[in-house]
Amino acid sequence: MTFLITGGAGYIGAHVVRAMLLAGEEVVVLDDLSTGREERLPEGVPLVIGSVLDRLILDKTIAEHRITGVVHLAGKKQVGESVEKPLYYYHENVQGLTVLLQAVADAGIRNFLFSSSASVYGMPDVELVTEDTPCAPLSPYGATKLAGEWLVRAAGAAHGISTACLRYFNVAGAATPELADTGVFNLVPMVFERYDAGEGATIFGTDYPTPDGTCVRDYIHVADLADAHVAAARKLAEWAAAGDHRDLTVNIGRGEGVSVREMVELMNETTGNDRAPVLSPRRPGDPAQVVASAERIAAELGWKARHDVREMVASAWAGWQANRCRR
């Protein structure tokens, strides 16, 4: 198998590339480098600089590298930006996926893995979010992920493609410092940025109906997330080889909730920071609790998260320190 990994030079993408290589798979990366970095890729991994919106580049890459499977990670991922620029997000995420799926179908590729998100669920009022929990995204970003799932499944059914949609929960950590997240869009790097500015972490909302009043989330180590991609890609290849074209939709989380206050306390402990957190009002649209049920992925793929929250924070902090010069 030779897998095309779109967005493979990004934070998550580079971890998936690394995991696929360690598993003995061949990979080719397509990335426009708008947020990705070429230096994240191991030596020898072919990098095609371009967009999934460019059909000519897709056709050339698929033919020249004899691509037999696709892992689609490329896309725009900032919730706030998606509210400000919904047309841009639908163009990049949905139209880009449409162009890619057409190229995949025309090339006769029979397995396709799609990077989705827990944002498809919106504000679920359940203790554990299962894959059957109704989807009601709150942002254009989440809506593009849900629309992407619909499109992937429809194209798979129409063209005999085995497909998987992986719904990520809150990704953190780094397998190695050089692969760490250098963006400041998620809780852990946002808190580290506050520390660098000599300030305490900000906690938005302390009156939620949770044990300590702060939001509860399910955090997943990016290395575990990458391993889940390997397991899913291999399952799709197995189905495709047998002519058994199916769809798999699974959550990727640990099935354990951690509150924002608990995360901040752990980050303070890990970094030696002694500044008290700044308590602020709730942000609009933040659900009180979003925790994954991880039963289906265990049953379907035999996958289970191996890293705990302490490992996530420690590895993220090591990466943050190593990458200060790049921010």
Rank of each mutant, 00 (worst) to 15 (best):
Y90R: 14
L101T: 04
K60D: 09
V48G: 12
P86R: 02
G44T: 08
S51C: 11
E64W: 04
K76I: 06
G44M: 08
R55L: 09
E39W: 10
V70I: 15
G96S: 08
V70N: 05
V27Q: 10
V71D: 07
Y90C: 07
G50W: 00
I49W: 01
K77G: 04
V29W: 00
V94S: 07
K76H: 09
R40L: 11
E64N: 12
I62M: 13
P42G: 03
L30I: 09
L97W: 00
Y89W: 10
E92P: 01
R40D: 03
V104N: 07
V28D: 06
H91T: 11
E92D: 10
S51I: 01
V48M: 02
E81G: 00
G80W: 14
L97Y: 03
D59E: 13
N93K: 06
I57S: 04
H65L: 10
E39V: 13
V27N: 03
L47Q: 11
V94M: 05
Y88P: 06
I62F: 00
V70L: 02
T35C: 09
V27R: 00
H91F: 13
R55Q: 12
E84H: 06
V45L: 14
V29G: 04
L73F: 04
V70Q: 13
D32G: 01
I57F: 02
V94C: 11
T61W: 01
G80R: 14
E38R: 15
I57E: 01
V48P: 08
A74G: 05
G44V: 05
H65C: 08
Y88V: 08
V99G: 03
K77T: 08
V28K: 03
V52S: 09
V83G: 00
L56T: 13
K60N: 07
S82G: 05
D32N: 15
I57N: 01
G36H: 06
R55N: 04
G96R: 13
V104Y: 08
E38N: 02
D31C: 10
E39M: 01
E38A: 15
S34N: 13
E92I: 13
V52G: 09
V83F: 15
G80N: 10
L101R: 12
E92M: 12
E39C: 04
V48Q: 04
G69D: 07
D54L: 14
R66T: 05
T68H: 10
T98K: 15
K77P: 01
Q95L: 15
R37F: 03
H65D: 04
L30E: 02
Y88H: 13
V48L: 06
Q78Y: 06
V28H: 06
I67Y: 02
G69A: 00
Q95R: 15
L56E: 11
V104K: 09
K76A: 07
P42H: 05
H72T: 11
L41P: 00
L101F: 00
G50V: 11
L73V: 05
K76S: 10
V45G: 03
S34P: 13
V94P: 00
N93H: 10
H91N: 09
I62V: 12
D31V: 14
Y88W: 14
S34V: 11
S34L: 13
H91W: 13
G80S: 10
V28R: 02
V70T: 08
V83P: 01
L73E: 03
L97C: 07
R55M: 08
T61Y: 00
P86A: 05
H65R: 14
